[in-house]
Simulated scan of single mutants.
Amino acid sequence: MVIYCLSLLIVRAKITQNIFLFFLIWNLFLALIPYLLIIYLRIQDDFRKNKIKTYLIIAIWLAFLPNSFYIITDLVHIFQSHPSTFWFDLTLISSFAFVGFFIGIQSIFEFEKIAMTFYNEKMLLIIIPILCFLCGFGVYLGRILRYNSWDIISNPKQLVIDIGLQLITAKTILFSVHFGIFIYLFYTSKKIIFNTKSN
């Protein structure tokens, strides 16, 4: 799918003679970071013993995780497309969005496998929905407020202030809950399909 996405982008650049939508490559790269982090943590033999390291990596993972789901909001750029390339661009952006979103869902699955060693199933029924809500809030911070994951380090004071101000607004809460439910439904759907195949 990644090769397919990149191929579409190259074909579009060749046809139109411009690199509009090339930012999708960067967004897909950001979507891949949390997956690589959680996979790295899973293959560590000592992640159960070294809790400080585990929690630190999970914190970084959580900071980057919304990027996986954020990429679906790049569909907003379809309105900048020329009528002659509209349907091609729709397929192109949707393909990148699908890959990024799928990577995000898979990241949550990998996180769940790690979390199962620390928490029971009842706790996970609470943790996963909260995680999806936080991803929804992260998407809001990125798309609406235009923050990036690295603003946690480069601009932490303003980020904390804006988070405090935004969390009390109905618009932010509704967006975060709505997007969180959207993510959670895809997560549960994939889990049902996976469990069905396993049985």
Rank of each mutant, 00 (worst) to 15 (best):
Thr169Lys: 08
Leu41Trp: 00
Arg146Gly: 03
Leu165Gly: 04
Ser189Gly: 13
Leu167Gln: 04
Leu185Arg: 05
Phe98Asn: 07
Ala97Ile: 09
Ile38Thr: 01
Gly164Gln: 11
Phe118Met: 06
Ile114Tyr: 02
Gln158Trp: 08
Phe69Tyr: 10
Phe20Ala: 12
Thr169Tyr: 04
Val2Arg: 09
Phe133Asn: 01
Ile126Asp: 03
Ile163Asp: 04
Glu110Trp: 02
Lys190Cys: 12
Ile108Arg: 07
Leu174Met: 07
Lys190Tyr: 14
Leu174Gln: 04
Lys157Gly: 10
Leu134Ala: 12
His178Ser: 15
Leu141Arg: 11
Asn120Asp: 10
Leu134Arg: 03
Ile43Ser: 13
Tyr55Phe: 13
Ile93Asn: 14
Ile15Val: 15
Ile3Glu: 04
Ile25Thr: 05
Ile72Cys: 08
Leu141Gln: 07
Ile3His: 04
His77Tyr: 12
Trp87Arg: 10
Gly164Ser: 11
Thr117Gly: 04
Phe88Val: 12
Ile173His: 09
Pro129Met: 14
Tyr187Lys: 07
Tyr4Val: 14
Ile60Asn: 00
Leu141Val: 11
Asn18Gly: 03
Phe194Gln: 09
Thr117Asp: 10
Ser154Tyr: 05
Tyr55Glu: 00
Phe182Met: 12
Tyr70Met: 09
Leu41Phe: 00
Asn27Ser: 02
Ser176Val: 11
Ile39Gln: 02
Tyr119Cys: 05
Gln106His: 13
Leu37Met: 02
Ile52Ser: 10
Leu56Glu: 00
Ile25Glu: 00
Lys191Met: 12
Leu21Ser: 08
Pro83Ser: 14
Leu36Trp: 03
Gln106Thr: 14
Ser95Lys: 13
Ile39Asp: 01
Thr73Tyr: 05
Phe22Thr: 07
Lys157Phe: 14
Ser7Gln: 07
Val11Tyr: 15
Thr169Ile: 04
Thr188Trp: 11
Ile127Asp: 00
Ile173Val: 15
Leu124Phe: 07
Thr54His: 04
Ser176Met: 03
Lys171Arg: 10
Phe109Lys: 09
Arg12Val: 14
Leu145Lys: 10
Ile3Val: 11
Gly100Thr: 08
Trp26Val: 04
Phe96Cys: 12
Ile52Glu: 03
Lys197Pro: 08
Ala97Lys: 08
Glu112Gly: 06
Leu145Gln: 06
Ile181Trp: 06
Lys157Ala: 13
Phe47Trp: 09
Phe118Asn: 06
